[in-house]
């Protein structure tokens, strides 16, 4: 394996898709990775959009944090790579 030219965007690229599902802006939320335990603002995630769905990966270990697939009838949201999302209650 060798170094790679990044093909991802930052977590802000997920804002639109997540706004379709959540009533709050998740890009400012703190997410904890189930893979390595790294906690970071979701905006720091590596987001891959040139794919059949949107995939957000941990900036520390590349574990999949979140996947969003929109079909004509449903939106599939897979959050299993996140131990939690910590969302501030203060505006």
């Amino acid at each position: 394996m060798s170094a790679d030219v990044p093909t991802y965007l930052d977590g802000n690229a997920a804002a639109g898709a997540l706004r379709e599902v959540f009533a709050v802006d998740l890009t400012a939320a703190i997410g904890k990775c189930t893979g390595c335990g790294h906690s970071a603002v979701f905006a720091e995630a590596h987001v891959y959009v040139d794919a059949p769905g949107m995939v957000a990966r941990c900036p520390g270990c590349d574990n999949v944090l979140l996947r969003v697939v929109s079909t004509p009838n449903d939106t599939y949201l897979d959050l299993r790579g996140l131990t939690y999302l910590r969302i501030s209650n203060t505006p």
Partner: peptide, 12 residues
Amino acid sequence: FPVLSAGPTPHV
């Protein structure tokens, strides 16, 4: 030949 990828490209 579009390139689609759901993660970093492995270089094996």
